[in-house]
Amino acid sequence: MLELFTHLADWMAYDLFSLEKETKLAGAVHFFIEDTTKIFFLLAVMIYIIGFGRSYVSPEKVRVWLTGKSRFTGYILAALLGALTPFCSCSSVPLFIAFLSAGIPLGVTMAFLITSPLVNEVAVVLLGEALGLKFTLTYVGTGIALGIIGGFIIDAFKLNKWVEPYVWDIKMPVPENAEDAKGWGWREKYARGEAIDIIKRVWLYVLIGVGLGAGLHGYVPQEWFMEHAGADNPFAVPLAVLAGIPLYANATGIIPVAEVLLNKGVPIGTILAFIMSIVAISLPELLILRKVLKIQMLVFFVVFLFLAFVGVGYSFNIIFGG
């Protein structure tokens, strides 16, 4: 069914704009039209469908589900729920305090906070389109595993001392849920609202990302990538992760670029490590968390994710490099 978008791009690039086939410009324009139309279609449809599922979970419910669980169950459940539960990054501090004040261990709380931004529906839809099912599942599995491992380490090393002390004293009143009667009408409206809201927020990044991808696709020769980011360059993985740290806001835009990188022969581990670094490590969000976490914890957080992503990059290059 998605060939429809290839035909649309064929028609627009070669007939409407009368571009000569096989030229660099035609290749770039064709890529841009095909990818933008396909991505917007997939985002609208998939986020609408996923929205129904997401209407059953909320951070408030996760808090209830995680309260009183054993640590072991807690890490796994928190990371899994983190993958499913959306929350605006500006909610991370209230959410953090609310989890701790319910007696949820710090490691379990952090497992949720690590996985939630890493595995989100926009990234999953775009990855599925760009890299296929196998690598998308690998990405999701890795994101959940990193949350579990990160949470476990934080508790194992008793890093509670790196939480600002005042946080432990805050008592949160039991939230009253105003919208409890949730029928299908409500879920449909929620799903539709999510799809519209997300597309409104990401459309520009998608255009920029696909534009960049189209430029790379059409104009940068494969040899350039092989030389700089190919399997033979042992520093490609750490450099990709480092480069991803300041590139936060373009998370949506980078996945269309990833598709081109893969086609140009950049190994998949390097690409996944790069994407994870962009999606998960964001300096503005870390600064928001400074309100509740001491600077040591933020440094630990960044170092852990950096090492984890580099490890992920090298391992997947070996596993899938064959």
């Binding site: 909320s58 951070p59 408030e60 808090r63 605006c88 909610s91 209230p94 005042y166 009143p173 939230p175």
Partner: peptide, 28 residues
């Protein structure tokens, strides 16, 4: 202020409060 937000019983923002009662939270 996040601490004030929490003390009003809210953990996901934006939230709306009318007459001291939270009528909405966690999105527009």
């Amino acid at each position: 202020d996040e601490v004030e937000i929490i003390k009003n019983g809210v953990m996901t923002t934006p939230a709306v409060m009318i007459g001291g009662k939270i009528v909405h939270s966690g999105g527009i």
